[in-house]
Design a binder for these strands. Sequence first.
DNA 1: GGAAGGCGTA
Length: 837
Amino acid sequence: MTATVNLSLSPLLSTPQQPQSNRSTTTDLIKSCKNLNEIKQLHARFTKQGFNQDPGFLGKLIAKCSEIGSYDSLKYAQTAFDNFCYSEEGLNNTYKFNSLIKGYSLAGLFSDAVLIYARMVLENVEPDGYTFPLVLSACAKDGRFFEGSEIQGLALKWGFGDDVYVLNSLIHLYSECGEVDKARKVFDKMPDRNLVSWTCLICGYARREKAEEAVRLFFEMVEEEGIMPNSVTMVCVISACGKLGGLGLAERVCGYIGKAGLKVNTVMVNALVDMYMKCGSVVKAKRLFEECVDRNLVLYNTILSNYVRHGMVTEALDVLGEMLSCGGPRPDRVTLLSAISASTEMADVFLGKQCHAYILRNGLENWDSIGNAIIDMYMKCGCQEWACRVFHRMSNKTVVSWNSLIAGFLRNGDVEAACRTFNEMPENDIVSWNTIIGGLVQQSMFEDAIHLFRVMQNEGIKADRVTMVSVASACGYLGANDIAKWIYNYIEKYEIHLDMQLSTALIDMFARCGDPPSAMKLFNKMKERDVSAWTAAIGAMAMEGNGKRAVELFYEMLREGVEPDKVVFVAVLTACSHGGLVGEGMEIFRTMKEIRGISPQIVHYGCIVDMLGRAGLLKEAIDIIKNMPMKPNDAVWGAFLAACKMHKNDGMATYAADMISESSPDKAGIHVLLSNIYASGGKWTDVAKVRMSMKERGIKKNPGSSSIEVNGTVHEFTSGDESHPEQTSICLMLEEMKCRVREAGHVPDLTNVMIDVDEQEKEFLLYRHSEKIAMAFGLISTSQGHPIRIVKNLRMCSDCHSFAKLVSKVYERHIIVRDNNRFHFFQRGLCSCGDYW
DNA sequence: GGAAGGCGTA
């Protein structure tokens, strides 16, 4: 026997217990045992004293053995149980069986708990009102829906059909098994309900992605029924608020902690910290965490996992360090899961390997979630082979393991391996679909993503919020208006919860599909709006060219107390730029630094240069570039060069070109702009130089392409494309358009052709631009009155722009073109951008 | 002696 054991058993050794001593003492003693040896000693001692006939004691003993969790301790518990059960005292005693069911449940061995009940039935031991809640709870925690329903039938038979405890357990069972509608039916039919009934159902909704219903039910309980919550109810409803993500609602709910006079315990602190984190109020969460005096492991894990989720890895590592220092709780597998995720987030394979080693040293690897997180970590760190090795060695591969592998392949751009794995996996779930669809979106394979979403529907798999966020984003990039409407209808039809993220994705989708009214309708319907939602709305206005409204929205957001971030400044500055609102833009740029304390990043300087440049203030723009605290990148130069070209200022362009040549950027766009500037000035030798340098360094020009959606199918055309099945008709249509537009006064703007060829050839090339081909296809494949919607990957050229204006007039069609930074609505020979773009 | 609660991979 070791010294530790002696120490912890000392109270028992010094003061022998009497059999009649109260039960809480025996419970305390069994609870204080640290290993199997101590349990055995205590058991032997009590047996000698005749005290082991207390089934409560045996229940606790089993629970303790299971908590220790070793093979030997579990075997010991089983033997103790068997010996007890078949001894004279153990037979035909309902109370004893009930205690054992509870013991196994406490130990988390729910199937064993259910087996004890089965044994009761076999041995004709009559269950009582206590038995059913216990065993139903065990079924609930083990997800045993069918056994649970059967046991419910038996409870009815034994006359406990109206028992509030039994019915509450039933609500819990159904909720846990994902049958919250059935739980609701039980709740509605109950003759008497108590607080636990309400709490069970609220919790059921909160866990089944129906957080909104959970909160609604909570208010029904407190406001209509006048029932005050207890701490358990509060924990459930607070966690629901965290899932909804709205701080205002959460604060209203939290008011009931005070109204009910509840003391905030550690579990509630934890729920609050988690909720504040998920609602984006990191400061409040952090303060609560720091003020909590008895932080336990779960609380540490909560703050840690949320820091990781928010990408706040420095803070995460601080918390981890605090835990590992003396006095902190010992990290468990949940902690390590976050630690691995932090390594993943930082792509720090060194830290990841340290975590992996800790996991192996502490025997935590048998939890499949850990294995999956490790796969994910190695994948993110680019160690695909390590990830595959961990995967192949896993003995308990689950659908999540397969999903992690697929996500990893996609992240590393290996779409083929991802699809192969997806097809090979034994069974897939909604996340498999979400992973592959989301991955395709990440890889900019938007059409494939939409296609796969259709396949998913054909296989009868219902999409969820996550699927819809990806699909909405894909649809937005494609600018496919019909698909956008279909997506929105799908969400309404299947009642997919419109949380902040999905609403924001939909606003963005409608905006990109040239439907700002739908975007704003959705935005106005939102009950809570975070900074991303406002950014989407401001972006919608920017894309429409309504800079004024975008700026108004920005100030409205500030008035509502939403803290602006870097991204929303980009959106509003872009809006100012496209709307020609130089004064407003400069003012916002100034407040950003001076009032909001956000130091402008290169992207913001890019916006300002773009804004000044578009407005023809080239000197001011170059001053900004010269005085920026960082080195200008290709986006900044790109904006400046585009402005030089727009305002035909060759002097500035050449000046900039010299500065750019020195820094030799790698981005194709800059080289193309440079060569265009030289070309429009007729400096063909310089054009050739730029082209040579691009070729030498392997920089490829991003080819222009336009896509158009017809009847839910997206057709893509590159410039000079002849691959479409309806090529002949497209060609004929283009010829017709050319003639009719020319009659209407169109003069081809040959400065848009950047190749040194004769004028006839230039004109030929000009009529092969992808947006013109897409327009022709649009005219032949859609009926009169139907708008033609085109998405262009680059900026629209000025010739195509004036061409589109005349097409809209001659053919009496609305033409909507989204280029890489805004929308152009062509109508009756005019464009919504007022030729300012 | 009975029912309800917090953290967790893709």
